[in-house]
Amino acid sequence: MKLKTLLVSCLVALAPMAAQAQVEQFKIMAPANPGGGFDTIARTLGEALQASGQVKSVVVENKAGAGGAIGMAQFVNNEKGNPNALLVAGAVTVGALETNKSPVNFGMVTPISRLMGEFNVIVVPTASPYKSIKDLMAAYKANPGAVSIGGGSAGGIDHIMASLMSEKAGVDPDKLNYIPFAGGGEGKAAVLGNQIAAYISGYGELADLIKAGKVRALGISAATRNPDIPVPTIREQGTDVVVYNWRGVFAPPGINAAQKTQLIKMVETAVKSPAWKAKAEKFEWLDMLQSGDSFQTFLNEDIKRTAVTVKKLKLGN
């Protein structure tokens, strides 16, 4: 597959443009369909790069499939050495690459920045007997099979979180009765309809249902409490699990150190611009900006943790 492009957007190019050392055309690969999480990041970053006057035009290329692995493979092949291209990837991609025996991996791209993160929340139906993480974990310990826990697709960040919790409870993650739901809607319906015991998803996805009292939030997966959110952390309730669903950007392989530094500077400027900030606030993204070496370290740890969990869950083949 040598061809380029499924270049979307340009319609966003209404932003004002400043002259100076502008990059003429910049490319951002979103390894997902238009409208999804990766796509939103790609388009928002594109807008922010333009609005901050660093780039003249941005093309967002959508290439969905296999949790981002297909887009990444194309990015590695086609953009080698191109200092004006970025790939969006995140925690979801880490899980997908581990489970799918993918021919590409994060070692083949150049990490630039982690842009944002979302923490997860674990909720139960209002009719549920569980009032806290402690209740839930006690019931889980007593009979793991009877506590069905829903979340996103198998091997994804929600699944990883559930198995980390299981480990903390001293139960082999293999015993977890995890029910994967693709694409949020069905999962929310299942917890609202009291079909499953508990459900894990990004906080933003469930915030409205929690505020309306349609589901009961037991805990968030953040390290510390968030002043705006009246939900305790899972960690403070005795189960030490901290999970963030992060997304970041990566440059193609084969760029030099100066180009890498330049890209980091551009991305950081864009993320600090009002265009990005406004979107981040709307979508309740956490500011988790981290670049270069520290991002690389974080990434390596995340990959290691995911690989161990995926192995324990006997996912993939």
Binding site: A66, T99, A154
Partner: peptide, 20 residues
């Protein structure tokens, strides 16, 4: 493609485009 419940891929013959 991938069987959603178990995350196992079936009949994909190792071809990435068939995973979905």
């Amino acid at each position: 493609g991938i069987e959603s419940q178990s995350g196992q891929s079936r009949f994909t013959f190792g071809l990435m485009p068939l995973i979905d």
